[in-house]
Design a protein around this nucleic acid. Structure first.
Lengths: 148, 148
DNA sequence: ATATATATTCGCAAAATACAACTAATCCCA
DNA sequence: TGGGATTAGTTGTATTTTGCGAATATATAT
């Protein structure tokens, strides 16, 4: 591990693999993108289609079809907004919540397993570091600021 | 930012976006996957097809096609191994090295920009943390250990 | 000789994605 | 208030990527 970029390249790839491996839940296969969609719907407050699509940087037409799939799978519900009947408010069905929870569990289990190889002190430092990194990435003028 | 998983979810997504945005170099458009392939060919010592495909978790038939594209773009060279003439040794052409260097430059520029929002001390801590995280992920029994 | 390993190729099907064109609802301002 | 512009979302169409299975070629191992 020589340089900084290498460090980050490997780390993000490992997380990529992690994501990939963590997305078959119950009887449905959930793609990486779909797991991010579920995650964001759960996280945001009565989000619209456009909101989630923007957050994830997905084209709205692609997103529309993804949502159709998730609705068919009974994981997501679309409700017309009472304020603006053009917009659809997204929410997780009970099944969707279960799926999100199952993915969350898997991810946390893996993270705990990883953290089990460090001391509590080290873990604390690492978590703080990631938090700092996130806030600095958010400050960054350039690219990748989909979260606001 | 409440829990640990959220922290990592957001971080890896931001890096995903970063990767996505960093892959148009010169006259060729380089996809995310292709940039990872270039990166790994550069990093490994006289790698074979199978080696890189395994590292990146890509199906060998898909990988074969990707390599064909990269060879056509004059970024990658295939050389039959002298030890085992079934295997093709992969290497970067001068153009491939340029492309890899250009991507590296973009990534490092972004990382520096991110780090510019912290003190030297904080940066040091963060880099150490990522290094520790990588080594613990490598130790992890479970999934995502494509690097060896 | 037979089995095994590396890689290529082909056909197929599924999925993701993008662009353009479209509908429907809302906004705005003259 | 009315009509054009704008916005949210959908749908048609086409492209691309990917994976799987099977067949092939070639080289290596037992």
């Amino acid at each position: 591990m020589e340089n900084t970029r290498e460090l980050f390249q490997i780390m993000t790839r490992r997380f990529g693999f992690l994501n990939k491996n963590c997305c078959s839940v119950g009887d449905h296969d959930i793609s990486l993108v779909q797991s991010h969609i579920l995650y964001e719907i759960d996280r945001q407050h009565h989000p619209s289609m456009q909101q989630i699509a923007d957050t994830l940087g997905i084209d709205i037409t692609t997103f529309s079809r993804q949502i159709q799939s998730l609705v068919k799978m009974n994981l997501v519900k679309k409700t017309p907004s009472s304020e603006d009947r053009r917009v659809s408010i997204l929410s997780l069905t009970p099944g969707g919540k279960d799926a999100a929870a199952a993915i969350d569990k898997k991810m946390n289990a893996y993270l705990n397993e990883v953290f089990s190889h460090m001391s509590d002190f080290e873990k604390e430092i690492v978590v703080r570091s990631i938090r700092l990194l996130n806030s600095c990435m958010a400050k960054s003028a350039g690219c990748c600021n989909p979260m606001g």
